[in-house]
Design a protein around this nucleic acid. Structure first.
Lengths: 239, 239
DNA sequence: ATAAAAATAGCGAGCGCTCGCTCGATTTTT
DNA sequence: AAAAATCGAGCGAGCGCTCGCTATTTTTAT
């Protein structure tokens, strides 16, 4: 672990690292060739987009606002995306990709016990969305009111997360570790408990609820709801 | 109980009844004097607003679209609201008012047992938002990205519902009926489980999940999460 | 009963303005 | 000096909203 160079970083989920990946994924749509120039400006553009959109909505954010907030000109912006909708798609794609990459790769130490696996999913999801909070808020708020392709991407991404949860619940129920009536419905109910943290982030900040408290309370709430059998294992997780 | 005259009605939560209240609340902002004319046209305007906004967002819905979908002219619309923002506020206010009126008046047969009271809150909230689904989706999606006054109204309304839940949890915890660590945090976690039904309505429709199934599963999930003590009472609720 | 007068409801072209986006000129880098 | 990156005035389209107007209903006067 090396020190991050931005304030809000969490290493692999830093603005820098995420924009690096956006640049690689969209090389053909981005006219600027030099990586260090492109990534730096993408970071300024994405940062401005998230800030303005999360305040007033993506649709209500004009490219003039965006130019001013990012420090580029109107025309300059268009070297980084071919149109406004593609800028949206770039951000949505990065959110969905990062979430799937993380949640789809649990550490091997965790997967053999459904309780530990479920607890890991809960904590990882909450910590990921904390590190990328503006990104997830953006995806959550904007995905609904936009073109079919982008909308579908968001729905699929949500469904994928839910499937991961459902698989763990199913294995736990089969092994007698959980007592669950409808596994898919339970997975569907767990999702909004994880989203709550970033969607209502302001509320918890105002109340002084720390992420550790929220992770603990949510894990406890969900474990009770699925009637997780207590064992000798500590509930403490690797940070 | 008398038969409703619209398809999606649930009596007091019909488009007609809700627009009647909007008309009464905003008589001074609405230039049309005759109640039966005003209420009928308000219904067409609100219906069109909810339909178009829930597809593409309120901001992206133009007054020309709205005029065409409601069957009125551009100028005609402005006899029913002084500006677009007030139209938003009218709808948000009606949603918040209806929710508070219902959830704040539990039947006396229910309030003396926290378990029954909590179950009643769960079922009532879900059935209300089912009857007024487009209204609640609209409020949920649009409240964030709009003027301070309207935004505050939405936040306050959410907080009020959460307070009602927290009060019931607190009484139950005090009486040993529930075992809860942090009452306020638990109430905050119950909220998104109730919102899930209308926010993701399409998903459950596709899966064939009925409202009865969802109410039962959510009630079960929440009761387990708060460690509700089992009793001899039936868990069946009055419809 | 009937005609004149007043009030109400609705229309849609058009205003001032901002939007997403383009493109030739200009600056910066190599 | 060539290439890459950036600039910003300007375009047509579409926005929220207004206003002069017509058609209809209700009230008043005879």
């Amino acid at each position: 672990m090396q020190p991050a160079d931005h304030k809000d970083d969490a290493g692999a989920f830093s603005m820098e690292a995420l924009c690096q990946r956006i640049f690689e994924r969209h090389r053909d749509a981005i006219r600027v060739r030099k990586p260090h120039v492109a990534v730096a400006n993408l970071a300024r553009i994405v940062e401005a987009t998230l800030k303005l959109s999360n305040r007033q909505g993506f649709h209500a954010t004009s490219l003039r606002d965006l130019a001013e907030a990012s420090g580029l000109s109107m025309g300059g912006l268009y070297a980084y995306f071919p149109n406004k909708t593609t800028l949206l798609a770039m951000i949505l794609g990065e959110v969905a990709g990062t979430a799937q990459a993380l949640l789809g790769s649990p550490p091997p130490t965790v997967t053999d016990d459904p309780r530990r696996h479920l607890a890991w999913l809960i904590e990882s999801h909450i910590r990921l969305t904390e590190a990328m909070q503006p990104w997830f808020v953006f995806a959550f708020m904007e995905a609904k009111s936009f073109p079919a392709a982008e909308r579908r991407q968001a729905v699929d991404s949500e469904a994928a997360t839910e499937t991961i949860i459902a698989d763990v619940l199913r294995r736990g129920a089969a092994g007698g570790v959980f007592a669950i009536g409808d596994v898919d419905l339970s997975a569907a109910l767990i999702k909004p408990l994880l989203q709550e943290w970033y969607v209502k982030r302001a509320k918890y900040r105002k109340r002084g609820t720390s992420i550790e408290t929220y992770v603990a309370a949510t894990t406890d709430f969900i474990m009770a709801a699925v009637r997780a059998r207590a064992t000798g294992h500590s509930s403490k997780l690797p940070g």
